[in-house]
Every structure is written in structure tokens, then in C-alpha cells.
Design a protein around this nucleic acid. Structure first.
Ligand SMILES: [Mn+2]
Ligand SMILES: [Mn+2]
Ligand SMILES: [Zn+2]
Ligand SMILES: [Zn+2]
Lengths: 153, 153
DNA sequence: CCGTAGAATGAGAACGAATCTCAGTTGGGG
DNA sequence: CCCCAACTGAGATTCGTTCTCATTCTACGG
């Protein structure tokens, strides 16, 4: 009934970059900027959005930084809709969470389940996996709905 | 604690096409073929895979058929990874289910939770949504793991 | 302090999934 | 049968993403 890694360093900041450095990356200006921008987000975001905020990071460098951070385990590529990828800090560094997706405006926000609720989900998920011969290593929950702003225009 | 639509016509086949017809679509050869191919799948699949199985359906027609079936509510576009979309029969027609994703070979298979397990998940999910001002209309659970085949090579 | 090898960068080309265009074809209600 | 909107198919087009390659950093040994 375990399996879910205990919630990691919930406090981001410097530790994120240290993790990247430990993975053997040089901490260049672009990489620091990308990590900082992702830390400022409340949900997974797109390369286009990052490009807009990081006007001085050329698009090819942005994508390359993202790719490099993804396989250093610092950033995760999640939840692509309409052929557009979204990026966020990896759960290993930002902690496990679920996603709330507004089906009207498309916004995605992070939501951190209570430990007990998530343990319940993890238990159910592991049972389902086991029943099909899978070994579960994690789960992603996307909650579809309508946000407050979209409900009352 | 409700919110999850009761499981629909679990028996696919003709009813899927009837639903499409009711949405005002002509039941052309390509559309029938696409629906039949999706019914034969055990999980969401790609346009490329469908194209291979439906060798006589040109690629532009395949994509158009998928698009038209998607907004008739018969097919769902889910779970795009690496910029490649995957399609499956919509939950409205195939029933609610979760996905088991092998992180080694990439296969995705459907898994139908027990009603009581899914009610538990739905309850948790609705609480999380409510806490952030969202009205939940559904949830998607992707279980990440390693399949039996990949574990024992 | 250089010098240097290996990393990283940036502008643009290339790629590929998906969508669009438009002239020709279908098919089902009348 | 007829008709006309719906549909088709080949190819062009779009656009997010990745690749290329000449240039610029950067860490490190001498
Ligand atoms: Mn969870
Ligand atoms: Mn469920
Ligand atoms: Zn919204
Ligand atoms: Zn596998």
C-alpha cells in the first residue's frame, strides 16, 4: 500500500538548481531563467508562454533547456493537449499533485491532495495496476471541470 | 458525492454508430471503419496505428473522420504524448475507465475500476475541485508503471 | 594567467503531425 | 431518377518542435 514516494522538498528555490547541477548540468543563464519561470507558475505551462516571459531566451535555446532539464529529472513534460506540450517542475522536486483543468478556458492549475486522500487514491491505483500485471510507479489525476471565473462570466 | 455519470451502454457495436447518426452524421465507409477499428482496441491508439489498419482510408480522411466523431461525442482525443494524439471511444459510449501506461514500452491499456473504488476516487476528486472553486465534471486517472512483458524480458 | 577541449548557444533549416483547400464524388430525402 | 449539401482525396500548408553547424562560453590543467 506504499509505493508513493514520500513528498519531497516542498520548498523549491535553490534546491532545484542544485539538483540540476548534481545531474551534471552547467547552470547557465537560460537554464536558471527557465527554472525560475517554472517556479513562478501555478500549473504546467507551454513553451510559448515561457518564451513570452523570457524574451531574451531564443526559442531554440528554450526548447533545448527544457529538454535537458527534463532528462535531468528537474522538469516534467506533461499533459499535452492539441499538440502543444506543457512543462512543470518535476514531482521529484515540486512534490506530487493533481491537475484541475478548466474545460472552458483551458487553464490548468496544480492541486495538492491531502496525504490521506492521496494514499487512498494510490492504494486504489496500485490494486488496479496489480490486477493487470503492472507494477505501478505513480499516478496522474486530471480533474476536468469548470473554473470559478468561467462559471460566472 | 454523485457527479460521475452512471456507466453507459457497456455493449458497443451498433449503438456507437447510432449515436453518431443521431448527431447528424452520414455513416460513411470511413467512419464505420474508424469506429470498428477503435472498438477493437484495448486502449487509446494513434492515428498512425489506425492508418496502418485501415490501409484504404486516406490519411486526410482518417483525421477528418476522427475530428468529426470527436465532436459528435463518439470518440475522445486523449493522452497525447510526444506530440502524438491518441484516440479512443468516448467514455459516454465505452464507459468510464482509467489508463495503465507502461513507461518502458509506452503501451496504454484501459482498466475499468470497480464502482466502489471509482466512487471513492470521484469523491476525493470532487472535494479537491470544490476546494479551488471548480465544478468537477469528470476525472482522468493515468497509472504509470511497468507492464508484465517489460518486467520479464 | 593563457590554452584548450568539451559544452552550450543561436539563427535558421528541417521535420512531422495535423489541418486546410478545392475540385470532384456520394448518397439519401424527395 | 435528381439534386444539393455532405463528403472525399491528393496535395499544399501550418505550426510546434527538433536538428544543424558555425560560433561562443566555461571549466580546468599547465
Ligand atoms: Mn495523487
Ligand atoms: Mn475513475
Ligand atoms: Zn476557466
Ligand atoms: Zn511495457
Amino acid at each position: 500500500m506504499t509505493g508513493r514516494p514520500t513528498v519531497p522538498t516542498a520548498e523549491p528555490g535553490e534546491s532545484v538548481l542544485r539538483r540540476a547541477a548534481d545531474a551534471g548540468l552547467r547552470l547557465t543563464r537560460a537554464r536558471r531563467a527557465v527554472v525560475a519561470a517554472l517556479e513562478a507558475c501555478t500549473g504546467p505551462t507551454t513553451a510559448a508562454d515561457l518564451a513570452e516571459r523570457l524574451a531574451d531566451v531564443p526559442i531554440s535555446s528554450l526548447y533545448r533547456s527544457l529538454a535537458v532539464l527534463v532528462d535531468a529529472g528537474v522538469v516534467a513534460r506533461v499533459h499535452e493537449t492539441e499538440g502543444i506540450a506543457r512543462f512543470e517542475l518535476a514531482e521529484a522536486v515540486a512534490g506530487h499533485h493533481h491537475h484541475l483543468v478548466c474545460r472552458s478556458c483551458g487553464t490548468v492549475i496544480d492541486v495538492r491532495p491531502t496525504p490521506s486522500a492521496d494514499d487512498t487514491v494510490a492504494g486504489i491505483v496500485e490494486a488496479e495496476a496489480a490486477r493487470h500485471g503492472f507494477t505501478a510507479t505513480g499516478h496522474h489525476v486530471d480533474i476536468e471541470g469548470v473554473c470559478a471565473a468561467c462559471r460566472t462570466p
